[in-house]
Structures are given as C-alpha cells and as structure tokens.
Amino acid sequence: NSASGPLPDGWEQAMTQDGEIYYINHKNKTTSWLDPRLDPRFAMNQR
C-alpha cells in the first residue's frame, strides 16, 4: 500500500482480474483508481 492507516469508513479495496487495485466507495456506490487516503478532494470533504 502506498498509504498508511485504514481506509475511510465505507471504502473497500478490491482487485481486477488483471491484478490492478481499485477502491469501492459503498456510500456513494462509486469506484476509484485513486486511494481515498491520498486523494486531496476526499480529504477536504472529510473536514
């Protein structure tokens, strides 16, 4: 992992069949290639 600590509440790390890691936001029912622990847009929304 490139980030430390647990994923934010509602997020899950998953892997594609090709072995690529992505992240699932169960609250918004969206997915992201960016780790939410590193995404400044997500961090701003949590303050």
Results as ranks from 00 to 15, higher is better:
39 D>Y: 13
22 Y>R: 01
18 D>R: 08
9 D>I: 05
44 M>E: 04
41 R>F: 15
43 A>K: 12
28 N>P: 01
24 I>H: 04
30 T>V: 15
24 I>R: 05
9 D>N: 10
8 P>N: 09
1 N>L: 00
10 G>I: 03
38 L>C: 15
25 N>V: 00
39 D>K: 13
46 Q>G: 12
47 R>M: 07
45 N>D: 07
35 D>A: 04
13 Q>H: 05
23 Y>G: 00
5 G>R: 07
21 I>R: 12
6 P>C: 11
38 L>Y: 10
12 E>L: 04
24 I>T: 04
45 N>P: 06
8 P>I: 05
4 S>D: 10
15 M>A: 08
31 T>W: 00
11 W>I: 04
37 R>W: 03
14 A>V: 06
13 Q>Y: 06
34 L>I: 13
37 R>G: 05
26 H>K: 15
17 Q>P: 13
47 R>I: 14
14 A>D: 08
2 S>L: 08
20 E>M: 05
8 P>W: 04
9 D>F: 08
23 Y>E: 00
44 M>G: 12
47 R>N: 12
26 H>N: 04
26 H>D: 10
29 K>H: 12
4 S>R: 10
27 K>Q: 13
1 N>Y: 02
34 L>D: 04
40 P>N: 14
46 Q>L: 08
33 W>P: 02
25 N>P: 00
31 T>A: 06
32 S>A: 07
30 T>A: 12
28 N>S: 09
20 E>K: 06
8 P>C: 11
12 E>W: 02
3 A>D: 12
46 Q>H: 12
19 G>D: 06
13 Q>G: 05
43 A>F: 12
20 E>Y: 03
28 N>E: 09
25 N>K: 01
37 R>P: 00
23 Y>R: 00
36 P>S: 00
4 S>H: 05
6 P>H: 07
36 P>D: 00
46 Q>E: 14
26 H>G: 05
45 N>T: 08
27 K>W: 06
15 M>L: 13
1 N>D: 06
29 K>F: 04
39 D>M: 15
18 D>I: 08
34 L>H: 12
33 W>Y: 07
17 Q>C: 12
36 P>W: 00
3 A>V: 15
30 T>I: 15
11 W>L: 01
15 M>C: 14
1 N>G: 07
27 K>H: 11
42 F>I: 11
36 P>K: 00
9 D>K: 06
47 R>W: 06
37 R>A: 04
18 D>Y: 08
21 I>S: 07
1 N>K: 09
21 I>N: 08
13 Q>F: 04
27 K>Y: 06
40 P>R: 12
11 W>M: 03
23 Y>C: 00
22 Y>W: 02
24 I>G: 00
7 L>F: 14
12 E>M: 06
39 D>P: 10
13 Q>V: 09
30 T>S: 06
16 T>R: 03
33 W>N: 05
24 I>N: 03
21 I>M: 08
42 F>G: 13
31 T>N: 02
7 L>G: 05
37 R>H: 03
35 D>C: 05
44 M>A: 10
43 A>L: 10
45 N>L: 13
16 T>Q: 02
16 T>M: 03
41 R>N: 14
1 N>S: 03
38 L>Q: 13
40 P>K: 13
10 G>A: 04
44 M>F: 13
26 H>T: 06
47 R>D: 14
28 N>C: 14
24 I>A: 03
36 P>R: 00
2 S>Q: 13
45 N>H: 09
8 P>S: 08
16 T>G: 03
23 Y>T: 00
44 M>R: 09
10 G>S: 07
4 S>V: 08
13 Q>M: 07
30 T>Y: 07
43 A>S: 13
21 I>P: 11
41 R>L: 15
13 Q>E: 13
41 R>G: 13
1 N>V: 09
18 D>E: 13
10 G>Q: 07
46 Q>R: 07
5 G>P: 04
16 T>V: 02
45 N>A: 10
25 N>R: 01
44 M>D: 15
30 T>K: 01
6 P>N: 13
7 L>A: 03
11 W>E: 02
16 T>C: 04
34 L>V: 09
11 W>F: 03
40 P>C: 12
8 P>L: 06
6 P>E: 14
31 T>K: 01
39 D>F: 15
23 Y>L: 00
44 M>W: 11
31 T>R: 01
42 F>M: 11
34 L>K: 14
14 A>H: 08
25 N>M: 02
12 E>G: 06
34 L>A: 09
42 F>R: 12
2 S>R: 07
20 E>S: 06
42 F>L: 12
4 S>G: 12
22 Y>M: 01
26 H>Y: 13
20 E>H: 06
34 L>T: 07
1 N>H: 00
26 H>A: 10
28 N>G: 14
39 D>N: 12
40 P>I: 14
41 R>H: 15
29 K>Q: 14
47 R>Y: 09
28 N>K: 10
24 I>Y: 02
2 S>M: 10
34 L>R: 10
9 D>V: 06
41 R>V: 15
41 R>K: 12
26 H>P: 09
29 K>A: 12
